[in-house]
Design a protein around this nucleic acid. Structure first.
Lengths: 212, 212
DNA sequence: GTTCAATTAAAACACATGTTTTAAAAAAAG
DNA sequence: CTTTTTTTAAAACATGTGTTTTAATTGAAC
């Protein structure tokens, strides 16, 4: 068993459990037991439970953010080349699509995106700080792009409407998580494939954002 | 010190701490210490920590839900009397306004509404189940009303768009909580008074919902 | 093959948790 | 006042927590 094997196993188990039970509610013993490694391995390889959380975020959020950033830059660049403003739905898609796509990735990334969505409103500073630190630059880029796309709106308005969109997306991610049960109205069997949901959300968000 | 004094003190302290630190991350000792009562008082008066959470929800969510329910019924009744469909923004206002109003109530209700919003996506079943059980009937009523208001949309679409709105509202509540720090873009100082925020959210949500 | 560092394993540590028990104090009932 | 019930108080209980320590094992370098 090479070093990276143990580390990867721990990261996988932590990701799985953090997403399903929350950070504070997941013990190191539960993680190491699931990973099939010794308890002390976490502190040996990562230093502490907090540092493990940071590592879990790092592993997937850095690549995801690179994709989202590239997408957003491409949207801006294309618009600039064509001498027009970026379109709201293009900007939203650049951000939302890769995010929700984690749900159908087949890997543990499905768990990860649930963890991220929940971290957004986590009561613990430990968790929320990690999230905000990783997402801040990207959020600012999206905000800027939307301000360009909606010059007739005040930045104030764009800011809050973007927050509404973030909240909607986070909630959908939580709801579509593996162990989430919600109160379904009788006679309604909503679609839950990622593509349909992504389209629904982008349409909804773009319409709300573009309101005069 | 009468019986209700001790119970109220515990409820106040629990509400405050649950909202700020989360349910699992708040110890009974922290609660009783803040309330100025003995540790055993919680188990004596409420039975268990879980039952205390239920009591915290009960105390404020029952009255709040009655208000929201009455509002929604009034919206439907008025529309029926005037021989028209209920308006989307009226239905949304009936639900959203009393909810966000908790923020300016001056009592501990400010903490409570944060607790509710966070419970929505809480990783712990204990917490989320309490929330869902209390909110389900009201959610169904709002859903029904919106289906009446938007007969050209499939219930499927209404369901998801309503979830987007719930997510947006929950996120805003978390963000405007006392100890929530977020990544504010440079040069933006968004309004944070409850009335403006309520109006912004209702406008956004209604526009998104009404999209053809 | 020997040496030395990296890794794993097992145990213990120090402390925090929800709950229960036992006794004291306070309040209510007679 | 006396008795009985309700409430508070203090301590102990059993268990779970993140972390550290110490020893065994592995793996590579020489």
């Amino acid at each position: 068993m090479s070093i990276s094997d143990t580390k990867e196993k721990i990261l996988d188990a932590a990701e799985y459990l953090f997403a399903r039970r929350g950070f504070h509610n997941t013990s190191l013993r539960a993680i190491t037991s699931r990973a099939g490694v010794n308890l002390a391995a976490v502190n040996y390889h990562f230093g502490s439970k907090d540092a493990l959380l940071e590592a879990v975020f790092q592993r997937r959020l850095v690549p995801l953010n690179r994709i989202r950033r590239d997408n957003l830059e491409a949207v801006r660049e294309t618009a600039r080349r064509e001498g027009r403003r970026p379109a709201v739905d293009e900007a939203l898609r650049a951000f939302i699509e890769p995010t929700l796509a984690f749900r159908k990735s087949g890997t543990g990334a499905e768990d990860f995106i649930t963890l991220v969505a929940r971290s957004m409103s986590d009561p613990e500073d430990t968790v929320r700080d990690v999230f905000i630190r990783h997402i801040a630059p990207l959020f600012h880029l999206l905000f800027e792009t939307l301000c360009e796309a909606l010059p007739e709106l005040t930045p104030d308005t764009v800011f809050w409407r973007l927050q509404f969109v973030i909240g909607a997306m986070g909630h959908v991610i939580c709801m579509t998580g593996k162990n989430y049960k919600y109160a379904l109205p009788a006679g309604v069997t909503p679609v839950d494939d990622v593509e349909s949901l992504t389209a629904l959300l982008i349409d909804f968000a773009a319409t709300g954002l573009e309101r005069p």
